[in-house]
Amino acid sequence: MVNLSDASTESKRPLSEASLPGQKNEIAYVMDLNQIHYHWPGQQQPILSIDSLQVQAGESVFIYGPSGCGKSTLLSLMAGVLVPDQGSIHVAGFELSSASAARRDRFRADHIGFVFQQFNLLPYLSVIDNVTLACRFSKRRQQRLKDKSVTPEQEARRLLARLEIPEALWNAGVNHLSIGQQQRVAVARAMIGSPPVIIADEPTSALDRHHRDQFLTLLTAEACDSGTSLIFVSHDEDLVRHFSRTLFLPEVNQALC
């Protein structure tokens, strides 16, 4: 058994939802996978088989590996879009693996920010509307903003400014943005309302070196400031230095052995 959480650095941030009393883990894990097995319907061979994988609150984890090693499947499981055949997945203390589909969707809206490889934005909404859209699907996110007494619009503006999107573009259609800018807007949408986890699926693969580094700097800084855990998947080893912990997926995924 590989206990990966040992290697992690201790979080200095106050813990979010995961630290509520009466919960399963002694140490608050924002993501806790145990004895996971998953195979695609109609296939014999499991694509994913993980004994144990934990992410602590506030941690930023880099998961890398070549194509086809189950990265996307792992992310879908973490986001609650897929359910493992066996094993349990706890996200922020909530057992995602046994919840109903509707409950998982609601949980994702409330607790997980997701950033895709590319084309993250709805083409028919303005930049601001794309960011605040995440709040419209989640009462929790709205509530967290209300607790800080800011409106979704104010928070969206703050995040966009923080992620260096020129103000002139905020009310424009997303087609006016470069790919790098689009990816940063997607980060703003994932971050709004401070979900405990951000999952990013190769968000830099369409960016050149300069924009990639700029993107990562902004992303990790904002995640650090808001105490959000970051799970970042890529096949690009160069990115390792931006993260507090690194996982090589083929080592963790026993299905590939």
Binding site: V81, D105, R106, R108, F116, L122, S138
Partner: peptide, 13 residues
Amino acid sequence: REIAILRSIGAGP
């Protein structure tokens, strides 16, 4: 694409 984005921010099927 649009559907996947909506799903990622928590829209159910």
